[in-house]
């Protein structure tokens, strides 16, 4: 009799636990909303990535289509190589443009993809050739001051 009581209660206990975990995964987490399971990865070279971090979103027209997988520094060409995972459901032309943008004024940085006009599409291991670096505030300001100064001369 005791045996049945223990089994039943432990069963209920585990069931509540599983429901909670599923609830967390589905209702609270993003397991359903934008689950990026099958991906293909492409790389892009940037002179400066600013504050871009691994796992930053990759957006096409504002929709999250992938994530930054890794960022490494290339010691030969002295620039950053960013590896991007893109969801298999989304295809982009070969001459797609990759920009590093900032969400809001001080928000996190993400990569925005702008489709080009090529007939062929990007596939696993390809490189996005056209890139635009992150805007670094200090550079922008010094550039502004410099041009202002040269105008006054």
């Amino acid at each position: 009799m005791d045996k049945i009581k223990f089994d039943a209660w432990v069963g209920i206990f585990v069931a509540i636990g599983v429901i909670s975990l599923l609830g967390l995964a589905m209702k609270v987490g993003n397991l359903t909303s934008n689950d990026i399971r099958e991906t293909y990865s492409v790389i892009a070279h940037f002179e400066n990535i600013g504050g871009l971090k691994p796992r930053a979103p990759v957006k096409g027209a504002g929709v999250v289509v992938g994530r930054v997988k890794s960022i490494i520094f290339d010691t030969e060409a002295y620039h950053a190589i960013v590896k991007i995972d893109i969801d298999k459901r989304y295809v982009f032309p070969k001459d797609t443009f990759a920009n590093i943008y900032t969400a809001g004024l001080l928000g996190e940085q993400y990569i925005g993809l702008e489709a080009g006009g090529d007939m062929k599409n990007l596939s696993e291991g390809d490189r996005i050739t056209q890139t635009q670096d992150a805007v670094v505030l200090e550079k922008l300001i010094s550039q502004f001051l410099y041009t202002k100064a040269s105008e006054e001369d």
Binding site: F13, G17, S20, L21
Partner: peptide, 15 residues
């Protein structure tokens, strides 16, 4: 075994 189950329940009920 019990601890992760309890923690999941805690998080869900807390939310």
């Amino acid at each position: 075994i019990a601890m992760p189950i309890l923690a999941a329940i805690f998080s869900m009920v807390g939310i």
